[in-house]
Design a protein around this nucleic acid. Structure first.
Lengths: 208, 208
DNA sequence: ATCAAGTCTGTAACTTGTTCTAGATTAGCG
DNA sequence: CGCTAATCTAGAACAAGTTACAGACTTGAT
């Protein structure tokens, strides 16, 4: 519980890097097939040609594995977005557009999305470090879309967090089929309004 | 998977009602001790003096059980709030105050909160019906706080959903210790701003 | 009171995440 | 090369959710 081997912080050898990559690949593959439940540790181990014990040395639990998978995917997304940033004039519209792109990407792999998001929200304290990383990545992506000049004000950070919260939670309701895609889109756009509110107006008051 | 016995829809006998109650009580008790992990089905069964098989007849999975527990607790909250509704003038302030009260209640039983919220977000499609019920309850509580005259407009419903999303997701980050209480409070208040925005303003989202 | 159907109990079995262990392999180093 | 520590493998073992089943108990209708 307290002191784990962890994915060795010391630089990985080539073979180790390759193993890690194979594991993440297998994880994404299986998740893509059947979501969270389809990612079975024994099968991940087999698919990536690694012993079960080794899998657990690299990722100390199924949730760790799936959160790491999410980190991996978000990294890709972040790079893609850097290359073709949204062009809308309003900050809120840029954020909304960014999230819509992400949403469309996820719609192509709903099972994978399911596995990653469920793992993320189910994670307990032992995964805090990894979840924080994902959280920072998400925040960075949104902040990029806002496109501020200086450092963000507290109210802006709060708005960004609300957008991220809405993003995760709305995604979950969509993934379990309790909300249609257009409701998810509407809710995300609604949350994005806060970006403008807090960007234009320092305090809570009647917006123009 | 498709057609199960389920908690008998036909009216329960007295003994059955009592069993159901004992089970929910045991669930809340154990959850209050150690959160999600501490709610072990064998132990719930023992504590409520019911055979394991019976427990599963009443609640077809651990998640079903915990979501039902949440429904139970929310019902209490709803009644309490009806008796002493928030008195602030601004709708957003009333919603914020309502959620702050709920937050304080949860802070008194963080483990129970953990179990319920984790179950809720981890629930898959097989629990949709129950999750929907909880979702409607949450929406109703927030709408009560808004205190509308007529039926809510789509934009208002969207705002309410964003508030609910933020509520759940922020709660999770707080429960796993990744956000301090005051950040949760700030974020909830931020989300509540949308209540005013959409109450004053017909709403953006989609053109008309 | 009696019978049939449905429910409950106790218990074992099965599934999948996780841990443990003994022996092979590998990496780094003299 | 030859040694030592770390890593990896295969497989057993364990834990908790879930399912299965045989027999006892209730219930409701006759």
């Amino acid at each position: 519980m307290t002191t784990e081997p962890k994915p060795p912080a010391s630089p990985l050898t080539e073979r180790q890097e390759a193993r890690r990559r194979r594991i993440l690949q297998a994880s994404a593959l299986l998740a893509g097939r059947g979501g969270f439940d389809a990612v079975q540790m024994r099968e991940v181990a087999e698919t990536s040609n690694v012993a079960l014990g080794t899998l657990y040395r690299y990722f100390p639990s199924k949730v760790h594995l799936l959160v790491a998978t999410m980190e991996d995917q978000l990294q890709h997304l972040h790079e893609t977005l850097r290359k073709r940033p949204p062009s809308e004039p309003q900050p809120s519209a840029r954020v909304a557009e960014t999230l819509m792109r992400a949403f469309r990407a996820l719609q192509r792999e709903p099972h994978l999305a399911d596995a990653m998001v469920r793992a993320l929200t189910f994670a307990d304290r032992s995964v805090n470090h990894e979840v924080d990383t994902v959280s920072r990545l998400t925040t960075a992506i949104i902040l990029d879309a806002v496109g501020l000049d200086g450092p963000p004000a507290p109210a802006q950070l709060s708005a960004v967090r609300v957008v991220a919260h809405t993003w995760h939670s709305a995604l979950i309701t969509w993934l379990s089929g309790r909300a249609p895609t257009d409701q998810v889109e509407r809710d995300i756009r609604t949350a994005c309004l806060l970006i403008d509110v807090t960007t234009a107006d320092p305090g809570p008051g009647r917006p123009a």
